[in-house]
């Protein structure tokens, strides 16, 4: 057994930045402003308006995940089969937007989608539009998919590069056409990357904020609601913490179900 000493700083880190904040959330979720035990926060979440926002957020996160997966999967495959130098350049381009401030990117999308924004102007040149782009669900999805795409591409790309080209050739040699290769070789072997990608997109997408306010014409997602309860005009830590807790549980259950899948599929893959 190796010494545990090198791990101590990380234990400390996790205690300070993960465990203690979680305990705070737990505390505020059940304790009101007056310091008494209360379930008020959860009661407020049971409001039909709040449930609608909650479900819509999960639904938008799901759609975002699907869009990202559909774009990222073929992209990761094609990238992984390119020359090494091209791969590096392309990955750099995928990562590049992440070096810019998140808010800045959202404002850029607003400029694009506005009624007299860039897209409508370009469409105008060929005699189309203007269309109502900003303030729609489509705009929210576009912003979220754009924002989270790298988190889907990276894990899938990293498993794809590990799939030996000779495996693909071997399956073609044994009679697989394109779809056969996809179904029998690529999907099973890239599955761990897909699971990671889904997790890394769905979780932050479900609790995202600002995007829907800015691109969805002031529409709120659950992340925005939580933000309001903590830093809004009338802060209510109790309600904010309650919603956070429920959201966390829902995501945790979702991930748990997916991990079950994961284990079933992966049995043959473990060495």
């Amino acid at each position: 057994m190796k010494s545990k000493v090198p791990a101590y700083p990380y234990f400390g880190w996790m205690a300070v930045f993960t465990i203690i904040p979680m305990l705070f959330v737990l505390y505020f979720a059940f304790i009101g402003d007056d310091g008494q035990f209360t379930l008020d926060g959860f009661r407020r979440l049971a409001d039909p308006y709040m449930i609608a926002i909650f479900l819509k957020s999960l639904w938008l996160a799901l759609l975002t995940t699907i869009i990202c997966l559909l774009i990222a999967y073929p992209m990761a495959y094609i990238l992984s089969r390119m020359k090494l130098n091209t791969q590096r350049t392309m990955m750099l381009l995928v990562m590049l937007p992440m070096w810019m401030n998140f808010l800045l990117r959202i404002y850029a999308w607003m400029m694009l989608l506005e009624n007299n924004g860039l897209i409508n102007k370009l469409l105008g040149f060929i005699g189309l539009g203007p269309f109502q782009l900003i303030g729609t669900t489509g705009a929210i999805l576009a912003g979220m998919a754009y924002n989270f795409l790298p988190f889907m591409v990276l894990p899938i790309y990293s498993v794809m590069t590990k799939i030996d080209g000779s495996l693909i050739e071997a399956s073609q040699d044994l009679g697989c056409n394109f779809f056969g290769v996809l179904r029998r070789i690529l999907l099973p072997l890239s599955f761990p990357g897909v699971i990671t990608g889904i997790t890394m997109v769905f979780v932050p997408a479900a609790s995202t904020f600002v995007i829907s306010q800015r691109l969805g014409g002031g529409e709120l997602m659950i992340g925005d609601v939580i933000e309001m309860y903590f830093v809004g005009a009338e802060p209510n830590f109790n309600t904010g913490a309650s919603i956070s807790l429920v959201l966390m549980l829902v995501i945790l259950i979702g991930m748990g179900i997916m991990n079950l899948f994961d284990k079933d599929e992966m049995e043959g893959m473990l060495i």
């Binding site: 000779s166 050739e169 399956s171 073609q172 040699d173 056409n177 043959g268 893959m269």
Partner: peptide, 28 residues
Amino acid sequence: PPHMRQVNTVFQRYALFPHLDVFENVAF
């Protein structure tokens, strides 16, 4: 294309499918 040809290949590094057992590799 390769999948339409009546020839099969034994690859240099074998290229066995790591997610399938021996039976399924042969049965592929």
